[in-house]
């Protein structure tokens, strides 16, 4: 529960920082701010994945493996799938930062950033459902 709360905060703040990056992108007023916000977002995303893996590790240690119960089977097919999406989004963000460094802010990089922003915000929206239904609902 404490882990889930921490992960929720990481993802929420990362959604906000990506919003700030989108603003810097839209008004093209500050390239360094754009890269800075993207880097913060990337760190928060990686922090989320790392913390989630640590959580799973602790669950395994305590004997909470997928084959133990129906709840855990469903848990481990849902939550890591979301985590995998966050991981892929982080890889995509790294690729876009590379594109930004090599090609600068051309039409393609800009397009990619806009699309990644949509994915990123959606990842957070899906996480709302996960923490409400799985973590909090499971406790209630």
């Amino acid at each position: 529960m404490r882990g889930a709360f921490f992960e929720t905060m990481l993802l929420l703040v990362s959604s906000f920082t990506f919003g700030m990056a989108s603003l810097a992108l839209k008004y093209r007023d500050d390239r360094r701010a754009l890269v800075g916000w993207l880097l913060i977002t990337l760190l928060l995303g990686l922090g989320f994945v790392a913390h989630e893996l640590y959580d799973f590790h602790r669950m395994f240690e305590a004997g909470g493996v997928p084959s133990r119960s129906g709840f855990l089977s469903a848990f481990f097919s849902l939550v890591p799938l979301h985590g995998l999406h966050v991981t892929v989004a982080c890889v995509w963000l790294i690729a876009l930062l590379g594109q930004l460094a090599v090609h600068g802010l051309d039409a393609q990089t800009k397009n990619g950033l806009i699309r990644l922003a949509i994915l990123w915000h959606f990842l957070d929206i899906v996480w709302i459902g996960i923490f409400s239904l799985v973590y909090l609902g499971g406790l209630a």
């Binding site: 915000h121 929206i125 709302i128 459902g129 409400s132 239904l133």
Partner: peptide, 13 residues
């Protein structure tokens, strides 16, 4: 959760 989803759609997307 429902209200927060709406907030995300409205303010972030």
């Amino acid at each position: 959760a429902l209200v927060q989803v709406v907030v995300h759609f409205r303010c972030f997307l």
